[in-house]
Nucleic acid binder design. Sequence first.
DNA 1: GCGAAAGCTGACCACATGGTCAAGAATCAG
DNA 2: CTGATTCTTGACCATGTGGTCAGCTTTCGC
Lengths: 227, 227
Amino acid sequence: MAKVDNTSEQEGGAIRRRNERAILAAAERVFARHGYRGASLQEIAEQAGLPKSNVLYYMGSKRKLYVRLLERMMERWNAMLDDISPEDDPAEVLSAFIRSKMQLSRTHPEGSRLFASEILGGAPFLQDYLKGELRDWVESRAAVFREWADRGLMDPVDPVWLIFLIWSTTQHYADFEAQVLGITGRDALSDQDLEEITEFLTRVVIKGCGVKHPAARAEDSATLTER
Amino acid sequence: MAKVDNTSEQEGGAIRRRNERAILAAAERVFARHGYRGASLQEIAEQAGLPKSNVLYYMGSKRKLYVRLLERMMERWNAMLDDISPEDDPAEVLSAFIRSKMQLSRTHPEGSRLFASEILGGAPFLQDYLKGELRDWVESRAAVFREWADRGLMDPVDPVWLIFLIWSTTQHYADFEAQVLGITGRDALSDQDLEEITEFLTRVVIKGCGVKHPAARAEDSATLTER
DNA sequence: GCGAAAGCTGACCACATGGTCAAGAATCAG
DNA sequence: CTGATTCTTGACCATGTGGTCAGCTTTCGC
């Protein structure tokens, strides 16, 4: 029957792993570009350098392949969701937040676009994730932001809108890459551009939300116990 | 032959206008949700309450229908691109900029998503527009922003990144509506929510870019000749 | 009222789609 | 070496796709 349970990551022989990698990479590109419906297994197979039957053999179905890609992307996303506490320095947390999200757009643009395409289509596969895990995560962060505001460490802005601001601005450089390149007249954004943008966003967010003394972390955490 | 040149807007009889409206509205929804390839004329026809043949009769082809929708959206976009000059008050211009873009997301979410889907797919139909008209428009605005920075009316931020920030944050509430609703746990965003978000974004942008006294426009333009 | 133009639409076409399957080829554990 | 498992793939299928077309009805100017 040749069925394989996809529970583990490192399962299967070398051949399987190699082919699955090729398929997943190709599929991510094609799904990102054309959406779930618009993507065709034929095109994915061609970009992976395999016959269509082979794609079905490894992935089972178009739906399973798509879901697997989404899950992989959510894992990447979760990987950067380190917890924070009200004791942390707001400036540093926000800065790290923007930087890591920006790097996700940089290192996995296709995955970002895949995610965007899914949401754009009404999130038929991710609805539960959005209303569950992700919502909880946002709420927990929002609570910390509010605490900071209460302590006078930043302006009392709505934390959720702030998170959306950071998500949208960083995601923009992956999702709207074609627009960014067309308007700036470049072939690609350099590492330097990305660094510049990251600094710009960080600056606007921190200054715009009235975050206090961005470089006073060491003092703060040191004085915490003293007070 | 019953061919019609699409050059003018108000052409055709009442029947034609009514059916075209229904088709365009349905097509905008379907294209926005599934992308160009993923959308089917069958589904568009059903949502418009017409047989598929009728859609082809009015629109000629899937491609022409899609292009027409994009052009309509670009017209809406252009409609809010009133010119600005370095003499204007930065705070007021940026505020109006954010507000009008936010309203576009509000009044035409499907159109916004259609546009997003096109860009996400690499802008195969809009490349020329991006590299031409839109780029020029951005450049002209950027020049004004730089002038403001030179005059000390705002921080010397890169105007292009600032424009992208505004675009992405406002567009977000149309394109990622599913995510926003899922996370906030609402059925829809109210007018009040939108107003709140608009004020938040305006505040962060203006404060974050160090724009001087937002409400001092009259003075400024008055004192300009005196100095 | 009449003729022309516009509107309508089911039947149809070539082609692409996701998916199945059977039969052979390659690999690998013992 | 051998038997079993994994891998490979072309042929095939039902269904859906964008698009054409002929023939019909409706509308409208005169």
